[in-house]
Design a protein around this nucleic acid. Structure first.
Length: 927
RNA sequence: GGGCGUAUAGCUCAGUGGUAGAGCACUUCGUUGACAUCGAAGGGGUCGGGAGUUCAACUCUCUCUACGCCCACCA
């Protein structure tokens, strides 16, 4: 077949992907090969491919394709996340459009509808990952709510419960009033918003007064609405202003509730008045103060319902007009906050904030303006309410310890290393993980409650009932009224934390029996756990990575992965974060349409340097599209010159220096590439193959072999065809992890193949670096470059053929020149080289290594231009020589520097001196 | 309040204890049958400021400045 003039990515991408997938080439059977494993961060079933996925998955695909080419049993596990909140929101939103709501259905009906949605509309992203060229093992695609995962989740929950690592507790949680569920600390995003700081008088009860005679305590708050559940006022124990009233009571003006003034270190004398109101049921700090003051969690007052509307407190003291009011102003109706402020103001208990206007007059305001760090739910987008409820917690502190140790001992290597500190810092200060969610979509918590609230945790209801019968000492099950199951589901991250082992067959083969010994899955788990590497964005370090480490070590007694690579964010062109609201989101599929998947992938790799975010740059993607075209055209050249697929894996025998040289260059490139990939330096890897292909292979090698290919066939042309074909093959293989589509296409275009490129062999040239050939071609390149730049500077048309005289050329040089006569003619436009002295008359002179080349010029030469050129060259060389001289003249340098450094300086100086002498001589000849 | 990161050519970024590199942009030239999605040759940087260590610092240490991110209970 003949290659078209231009490379059209769209014409081949889908075809090759389909080919690979249908032939099962993403997971070729390699039972005896060394395993290599990565698991893909399961994207949300609701998700579609964004630019961050493109980066994350490109990097993983590069690694897995590289390992596959190296012959490993490379497994890239893929699947989707059921994404509890996100998915439930999508389905509920659709219901809203049809004037329906979740509660119109039974739980079972609703969940059924979510499954229907999942089957029809979910998983868009899996098609999009295919467009990117990602070679994951789709034949075993998983879902966090598939049968195996369900089993794993149940077992993990039950085991953790039995080990005391999961427990039910009544404490404050982050409550999202929009979604009506508890969320974890990590799902809370703190944002600074402009708010108000109010100052109020809290009257002392029973006629008590402060030492200064005031009959009230001043308290300040940003959240006056919580006053309806105030249960104390705290002052610092050493604060002299309030010592006398500690233990005395306050009468809350709105509720009439009486409560104590307590001493607590939490109160900061420097802040506000030094006295702070305490609402244990609605503030995390106050909860702790309340507990210290002897208020049990069960006695703490709650004044809000799940939607953050006011409800009656257990002491019944909330005035009727407040009941049902929203916490904030809503739909134009004043909320509790506004009403409380208004009422206290009417009672004369508001202490105004006084400022001076520009005329120096005092002006009173209700409140002091203040920036308040406010918690928002990351999904629901509304202000989070600390709320007192019963929830399930994971004892993260205990689970974190071995995960800390694993990183400290090097069992997990975090790349880049700077993230270790973040890991330790978070793990060492970890809080209990609230894992229960008041949703319907997700893994339902395997806990049942007896009539008296007794908890029974088991994988199945029958087991729970069994436990209950035993617990209540009931002999006849028919006498037992039954258990009610916990209605909550688990945090989505609870299941995805099990991904590295649950996707490999756990827990089915947790305890191998003769029956399942032959089961592949048990070997799968054994072979592929721990995973070799995890690649993830740092944004899910805590959400996912850390939890995988905790659960993996707990249940598998080993780390989930040996290395953890964290990459940054892809930012918009101006460096800002991409977001839908800003409208600056770049669609990776659009880039694929425009430039091809290969170009986008190469861009991602080339831009991925450790520890830095990537800024989007379309021009650069375009540049890599051009690179693909360049390779395409180089292949066309080969094709039309009888260069095709190599028959050998190792480098062909070569005699010509140019062939020996390019083979050496392949060896060096392959070594540099392997080193970069092993070190997860994607940028270095991409640049290595890019420059080898374009600069070495296309710009020099192909140019230098043109005369050989066209010359008389003395065997050198055949040798060159073999070498060129082999080198092109090596390029195609080495580039494949980065640009899978174009390389697979070229692989087949260049000749008959016994296998597809995706499962080809990574280069192992078995060739030494040929220093002699390298030195010779380096000289040739230098000479040709010198000739070219000389012409430009002397305004000689580049196509002009010239002759050169090398009067001081020794035998070795003469031989060298003779060997490359054809290339010098064709590439350097030096048609004749003589070793006789140059004739008198105008000439250009150039110095390469230790010889001077005199190029006689027909007609007038611009003496001044030639002088300027030589002078400039001389200046450069002398400057370097001078600096080297200075260094060598410094006794300290000679004594203290490393011997190699001094040695090199001496050698460099000798070279520079020769060169400058020659340039000076050339200059002198010009007169 | 802690922690981290980044400041290198007009732009986006690599980089090494021995006087700096890439891509794009820019300038000049080029239709020699692979490629104008190209080729050739160039211009352009006191490597954020200051101090220190060293024979030598863009590279190590400290400090300052600017920007960014993460964590944290300041009512």
């Amino acid at each position: 077949m003949t290659l078209d003039k231009n490379f059209d990515p769209a014409a081949i991408e889908a075809r090759w992907y389909e080919h690979w997938e249908s032939k099962g080439l993403f997971r070729p059977e390699r039972k005896d090969a060394e395993p290599y494993t990565i698991v893909n961060p399961p994207p949300n079933v609701t998700g579609s491919l964004h630019i961050g996925h493109a980066l994350d998955n490109t990097l993983q695909d590069i690694i897995i394709r590289h390992e596959r080419l190296k012959g490993k049993d490379a497994l890239w596990v893929v699947g989707m996340d059921h994404a509890g909140i996100a998915t439930q929101m999508v389905v509920e939103r659709q219901m809203n459009e049809r004037q329906q709501k979740r509660t119109d259905f039974t739980r079972e009906e609703f969940v059924e509808k979510v499954w229907e949605w999942k089957e029809e509309s979910g998983g868009t992203i899996t098609k999009q990952l295919r467009r990117l060229g990602c070679s994951m093992d789709w034949s075993n695609e998983r879902f966090t709510m598939d049968e195996g995962m369900n089993e794993a989740v149940l077992k993990v929950f039950v085991d953790l419960y039995n080990d005391g690592l999961i427990y039910r507790d009544k404490r404050l949680v982050n409550w999202d009033p929009a979604l009506k569920t508890a969320i974890s600390d990590l799902e809370v995003e703190t944002t600074d918003i402009k708010g108000s700081f109010w100052h109020f008088k809290y009257p002392l009860a029973d006629g008590a007064t402060l030492d200064d005679g005031r009959d009230y305590i001043e308290i300040a708050t940003t959240r006056p609405e919580t006053m309806l559940a105030d249960m104390a006022v705290a002052v610092h124990p050493s604060d002299d202003r309030y010592k006398s009233v500690i233990g005395k009571e306050i009468e809350q003006p709105i509720t009439g509730r009486r409560f104590k003034i307590v001493a607590d270190e939490h109160a900061d004398p420097e802040l506000g008045s030094g006295a702070v109101k305490i609402t244990p049921g609605h503030d995390f700090n106050d909860f702790e103060v309340g507990k210290r003051a002897g208020i049990a969690a069960g006695d703490m007052l709650n004044m809000l319902d799940g939607e953050a509307n006011v409800c009656q407190t257990s002491d019944g003291l909330v005035p009727e007009e407040y009941i049902g009011l929203h916490r904030f102003k809503k739909d134009g109706i004043a909320g509790v906050r506004e009403l409380v402020v208004q009422q206290l103001k009417e009672l004369g208990l508001l202490i105004p904030h006084v400022t001076k206007n520009k005329d120096g007059e005092e002006v009173e305001h209700d409140a002091e303006p203040r920036t308040i760090a406010t918690p928002f739910g990351d999904r629901g987008g509304v202000v989070i309410e600390p709320w007192l409820t019963d929830q399930w917690y994971v004892d993260a502190e205990t689970l974190a310890q071995p995960a800390i140790k694993a990183v400290r001992d090097g069992d997990i290597e975090i790349v880049p290393k700077t993230w270790e500190k973040t890991w330790f810092n978070w793990m060492e200060n970890i809080q209990p993980w609230c894992v229960s969610r008041q949703l319907w979509w997700g893994h339902r918590i395997p806990a049942w409650y007896g009539p008296d609230g007794e908890i029974f945790v088991a994988e199945f209801e029958e087991e729970a009932i069994g436990q209950a019968l035993e617990h209540y000492a009931i002999d006849n099950p028919e006498d037992f009224p039954g258990l009610s199951r916990d209605t909550d589901v688990l945090d989505t991250w609870f299941s995805s934390a099990l991904w590295p082992f649950a996707t490999l067959g756990w827990p089915i083969d947790d305890a191998p029996t003769p029956a399942n010994d032959a089961d592949v899955s048990s070997k799968t788990l054994e072979r592929h756990y721990p995973n070799d590497l995890l690649i993830s964005g740092f944004d899910i370090l805590f959400f996912w990575d850390a939890r995988m480490a905790m659960q993996g070590i707990q249940f598998m007694k080993d780390v989930p992965w040996k290395r953890l690579y964290l990459h940054g964010l892809v930012r918009a062109e101006d460096g800002s974060k991409m977001s839908k609201s800003k409208g600056n989101v770049v669609d990776p599929l659009g880039l694929i349409d425009e430039y091809g998947a290969d170009a986008l992938r190469f861009f991602m790799a080339a831009m991925e340097s450790q520890g830095r975010d990537i800024k989007m740059d379309d021009k650069r993607v375009e540049g890599y599209r051009n690179f693909a075209t360049k390779l395409w055209n180089a292949s066309r050249f080969c094709e039309t010159n009888g260069i095709g697929a190599s028959k050998t894996l190792s480098a062909p025998e070569a005699t010509l220096p140019v062939n020996r040289w390019i083979i050496s260059e392949v060896v060096e490139t392959q070594q540099a590439l392997d080193k970069a990939l092993t070190g997860l330096r994607f940028d270095a890897a991409a640049n290595t193959i890019y420059h080898f292909t374009w600069d070495r292979f296309c710009d020099w090698y192909l140019e230098l072999i043109k005369p050989v290919l066209q010359g008389d066939d003395d065997g050198t042309a055949d040798e060159t065809r073999l070498v060129a074909g082999w080198v092109l093959d090596q390029i195609i293989v080495m580039l494949h992890p980065f640009m899978p589509f174009i390389t697979e296409e070229l692989w087949h275009s260049m000749g008959e193949r016994n296998y597809d490129l995706i499962v080809a062999k990574w280069p192992a040239p078995k060739a030494e670096i040929d220093a002699e050939a390298k030195g010779e071609i380096d000289w040739l390149i230098k000479l040709v470059s010198e000739v070219r730049s000389t012409k430009v500077e002397l305004n000689i048309p580049p196509g002009t053929k010239m002759a050169a005289h090398v009067p001081d050329g020794d035998n070795a040089l003469q031989d060298k020149i003779a060997r490359h006569a054809a290339a010098l003619d064709r590439v350097g436009r030096l048609e004749a080289v003589s070793f006789d002295p140059a004739p008198d008359g105008a000439s250009a002179q150039l110095v390469v290594d230790d010889a001077t080349y005199v190029l006689p010029l027909a007609g007038a030469i611009d003496i001044d231009a030639e002088k300027a050129r030589l002078t400039k060259a001389l200046e450069g060389v002398s400057k370097e020589a001078k600096s080297l001289e200075g260094r060598l003249g410094n006794a300290n340098f000679v004594e203290k520097a490393k011997p190699e450094a001094a040695e090199k300086a001496r050698a460099d100086l000798a070279d520079k001196t020769t060169e400058s002498e020659r340039l000076q001589a050339a200059l002198d000849r010009l007169g």
